[in-house]
Design a protein around this nucleic acid. Sequence first.
DNA 1: GCATGTTTTGCATCCGTATGCAATACTGCT
DNA 2: AGCAGTATTGCATACGGATGCAAAACATGC
Lengths: 359, 359
Amino acid sequence: MRKDTGGDRDEEAAVSPNPRRVTSYEVARLAGVSQSGVSRVFKPGASASAEMRHRVLAAASALGYQPNAIARTLTTGRSNMVGIIISDLTNLYFPEVLSELAARFSRHGKRVLLFTLPHEAGVDRIIGDVVGYQLDGIVSAARLSADQVSAFLSRGCPVILYNRSLGGVAAGSVCCDQNKAARRLADGLVDTGHRRIGFIGGPADSTVGRQRSDAFAARLAERGIRTTPFVESDFSYAGGHAAMLELAGRAGSGLDAVVCANDMMAIGALDATRHALGRRVPEEMSIAGFDGIDPARWDSYRITTVRQPVRRMTEAAVRMLLDQIADPARPPVRRVLPGELIVRDTVRGLAPSGDADGR
Amino acid sequence: MRKDTGGDRDEEAAVSPNPRRVTSYEVARLAGVSQSGVSRVFKPGASASAEMRHRVLAAASALGYQPNAIARTLTTGRSNMVGIIISDLTNLYFPEVLSELAARFSRHGKRVLLFTLPHEAGVDRIIGDVVGYQLDGIVSAARLSADQVSAFLSRGCPVILYNRSLGGVAAGSVCCDQNKAARRLADGLVDTGHRRIGFIGGPADSTVGRQRSDAFAARLAERGIRTTPFVESDFSYAGGHAAMLELAGRAGSGLDAVVCANDMMAIGALDATRHALGRRVPEEMSIAGFDGIDPARWDSYRITTVRQPVRRMTEAAVRMLLDQIADPARPPVRRVLPGELIVRDTVRGLAPSGDADGR
DNA sequence: GCATGTTTTGCATCCGTATGCAATACTGCT
DNA sequence: AGCAGTATTGCATACGGATGCAAAACATGC
């Protein structure tokens, strides 16, 4: 009656050292139904009688059956895996983002394939993997070129850009508009009498870094402050530290305040100011950053910063990607959430807002 | 070597809206060989003439062919994916570990599936995924029970436990022996005149936490110090902060020093001491930690700590897992690397070693 | 030139699940 | 009871690549 794929040979090997997979055929045989029945019971929307459902589930649990996601992927074309691209986990903003993204995706039944880009140029490999592993989608928090994003999209893999957006590409994006907050920060500094204000920027090719410095410098210019000593750095603690020393050396003692393009550098700059330069913060030097990472709240720092709403941003990114996956035809969305100036203790004269510092 | 998937696309259907996958059959047809020929060319060890190899590769690059890893997994049983289980990325020790592991695995051609365990009990789902996605192996830096580890192993998925080891389970492990360094730390404190030494431990079910406190307390006892005020906490900054306040309240002003079971808590405790209690470190209170995370080196902290050789540990973990995957019969290895006492500035009277603080 | 040994190659089949289609089992109703 | 209509179920096949086996191609030796 049925073709029986040669099941009953030396099968009864007790607890064999070979952990052979249990397949839907075996469950079917034990439950006395067809393989497709088993398949249907394990597929959410499919039709199956209570009777069949019960017998299959009983057999499945007796055998310890677990549907093979790989085989399922092969037929459905959907892997239930998403890729997350992070450039650098040592910038402590990214673990926070990754942690949130991973938790949220997991909650929605998506597995997370993590790609880190330590030394650049690994993107081509990721593109290959996206195709090869049939990833359902990508969230990228790393610098990708328009061509690279297009490569994903043309393979039918939707992309959500986190904290950057690219013109001419049909990728969704979640960004943080720090313009307003950056201007408020600039105003706050000027209003409290700061006049010679330096800036420690990110790498030249960083769009976020550029946005932050531009917004800030623009407002400063509007307020009549034109010379802003600028040092380019790399978003790291050490980078901020070194940049601060350079800035201090270059600008002499006239420097009032230094704003850094992210909190990691702000922390480094603050430490350099206090411990290497021996100057007090904020009394002799004001410092501010961007991101709102956790360490910036630590008692030793309490850095005034422009915070990104990480929770809401990651939530939006996940939502958007899931939507794109569910309906690839839907036009990609660009979501912009506002950054918020969190006033803490590193800017002289600026009083902490009533803000409870919550997330 | 072969690249440029979009160079010459006058191959009909220039910008097809439907990104249909290119299969080995199509490559075979274009190259005028059989599908198995294509398969063999793309499999490293297989036999193929130079002629065939050339024609297949030409056809493949013309079509932009990318072998389907999913289908390959289905037949070979090897997914080239490994799982990494991390309990909590907000403990900044873990991003460092994850970053290293991810980079190393990637270098060896393994994709990384990231599992975070925010609220416990998600392990069962991971077990399901391991089977379903046919993961080649697991590195776990989270607390797993022996049963859970066995569940992986019995599914033919080798496991390397990072920073913990379990009796009676055939899992490899990489641990850090902090015993000696912890004893040296205890000696250092006693030798420099500390007498009333508190300890902030990890959660009760944490083996690392237990090991650290035990080793430390044991040595203290040997040196004739028996009462060590102990507070249990949760490895977080806030936890260390709160625990410090509790300790100070309980032990009164007699407290000389506080050792924390990890650096995150040490940082929190240090901040609590300086900023909430208003006491100077190390003059009025010494503090030390474990792990050797990056922030513990920051100028504001410079915490004396027992460092784990993360580079070498992750290297060992990756090596061991790859070996297990290559030869499942090989008995699992338990590797123990020594922790190292890094003397910095938070213990009164203890002079920084000549150590360059490198990794 | 022929027998023998060694690669290469193609054929057929398998991996484990999903699903269109047709057959079957029910349901409610007259 | 008989019938149309719906809900279940099984059959057969597809998904894309790997691989055992035997045929074919090539190389070697005399």
